[in-house]
Amino acid sequence: KLLSSIEQACDICRLKKLKCSKEKPKCAKCLKNNWECRYSPKTKRSPLTRAHLTEVESRLERLE
């Protein structure tokens, strides 16, 4: 599967780190437990900047 097509777990399953069936409108866990089942939009991760990478590398060197 391509990364862009990976389905996201519902908010509660993601928060509780449960295996989500990803069914809509309610996944199996939410249906069974009568929880409100919501699927928040995916958040875009910002790409690493060179400055951040350099900072992490220098912190790693100090720890070694």
Rank of each mutant, 00 (worst) to 15 (best):
R59D: 00
K42M: 12
A51M: 11
K42D: 06
K16V: 00
V56P: 03
C10Y: 04
L31Q: 12
K1H: 13
K42T: 09
E23M: 13
S46Q: 03
L63A: 03
E57V: 07
K29E: 00
R62P: 09
K22Q: 09
K26I: 14
S46N: 03
C13L: 05
K22G: 01
K29C: 08
K19Y: 02
S4Q: 10
E64D: 09
A51F: 12
K42I: 10
K29S: 05
R45M: 03
R50M: 08
L63Y: 04
H52R: 06
E64Q: 14
L31H: 14
K17R: 07
H52A: 00
L53R: 10
K16S: 02
L48R: 04
P41V: 06
L48V: 00
H52D: 05
T49F: 04
H52L: 04
S21R: 03
L53A: 01
K17M: 00
K16P: 02
E64A: 04
L48W: 09
K19E: 04
C37D: 08
V56I: 06
T49C: 06
I12T: 11
E64N: 02
K29I: 08
K1D: 09
Q8F: 15
P47H: 04
L3I: 10
P41D: 10
R62M: 13
D11W: 05
S4W: 09
R38L: 15
Y39M: 06
C37E: 02
S4E: 13
P47F: 01
N34K: 12
K1C: 15
R62E: 03
T54C: 08
A28E: 13
C27Q: 04
I6V: 09
R14Y: 07
K42R: 13
E36L: 12
C20K: 06
A28I: 14
D11C: 00
L48D: 01
K44F: 08
R59Q: 12
K29G: 02
L18R: 02
L18K: 04
N34R: 12
P41K: 06
P25A: 03
P47C: 05
A9R: 04
K42Y: 15
S46V: 01
V56C: 14
K29V: 00
E36G: 12
L48P: 05
N34C: 14
R62W: 05
A9C: 01
L63T: 01
E57Y: 06
E23Y: 00
C37I: 03
P25S: 09
